[in-house]
């Protein structure tokens, strides 16, 4: 069974013309844009952002649209990664999404960055710990379990120091996969823990096509977010601790 938590099977035939979707992930120094027609991926770009998202994200979206021969104004759903992540980065994504929503009457769908990252790795079994860099040696972390209906998040998103991350992972029962932003030293320490496996470097990259897919699935299930009221998850140290 192919499941995205309560949403329709993405491979089921669709009769109506699927909507054009643009998805933005500006949660950290990894940036990403995907262009989709319903569940069909037309293209994506994901890269290590050197300077600012502000200068790099829309040119990437323009390239994707041009390659696919789709005018930007055909977009009818904008998906943005809502975090947790860099506050400024998240505001770039939210503002881009709101701009599209205002100018085109497009639906806006906010998807937590860590949910999209876990969704990207949903084929892995056991417990999944998804990470986004929080700077200063800290990470934003979300913990997920693979279930028949799809992935289920366990607990709140948290900000963890290096030591707390290791404690958190060591305390998990059963086999666990660690995915998302990673450094060699951190990977070595985590991989040395019993029953813990760390994704390879390619698996650390967040792929915006997965964000778009999860966003569209949630749109079909729940409808659009309240575009004007949408705001990032402003998670900082001390918040949402268990």
């Amino acid at each position: 069974m192919i499941a995205i938590h309560g949403a329709p099977d993405p491979w089921s035939p669709i009769e109506t013309e699927p909507p054009i979707i643009l998805a933005f992930d500006t949660s950290s120094t990894i940036g990403g844009v995907a262009l989709c027609r319903g569940f069909e991926v037309l293209g994506e770009e994901t890269w290590r952002v050197g300077g600012s998202h502000t200068a790099q994200v829309l040119p990437a979206a323009a390239r994707l649209c041009q390659r696919a021969g789709i005018p930007p104004r055909a977009t009818s759903i904008a998906v943005t990664a809502t975090g947790p992540g860099s506050f400024t980065g998240l505001r770039v994504g939210a503002s881009l999404g709101k701009g599209l929503a205002a100018a085109l009457g497009a639906a806006l769908v906010g998807v937590p960055t860590l949910d999209a990252l876990a969704h990207q790795h949903r084929a892995l079994t056991g417990t999944l710990v998804a990470l986004v860099d929080a700077g200063r040696g800290q990470v934003y972390a979300g913990t997920y379990r693979a279930a028949a209906r799809g992935l289920t998040r366990r607990g709140e998103f948290v900000v963890l120091s290096e030591e707390e991350l290791i404690e958190h992972v060591a305390a998990l029962s059963g086999a666990a996969w660690i995915v998302g932003e990673m450094w060699p030293e951190r990977a070595q320490v985590l991989a040395a823990l019993p029953k813990v496996r760390v994704a390879t470097p390619a698996g650390t990259l967040r792929r915006p096509a997965h964000l778009a897919e999860l966003g569209y699935a949630r749109f079909l299930r729940d409808g659009p977010s309240d575009a004007a009221a949408l705001q990032p998850l402003y998670l900082k140290r001390g918040d949402s601790r268990r």
């Binding site: 502000t54 829309l58 979206a61 323009a62 005018p71 930007p72 104004r73 977009t75 400024t88 505001r91 770039v92 939210a94 503002s95 881009l96 999404g97 709101k98 701009g99 599209l100 205002a102 100018a103 085109l104 497009a106």
Partner: peptide, 15 residues
């Protein structure tokens, strides 16, 4: 960042 990105997206969307 908020105004600039919203404006960029609007210009991009409307051409």
């Amino acid at each position: 960042v908020v105004g600039v990105n919203a404006a960029k997206a609007m210009a991009f969307a409307r051409g």
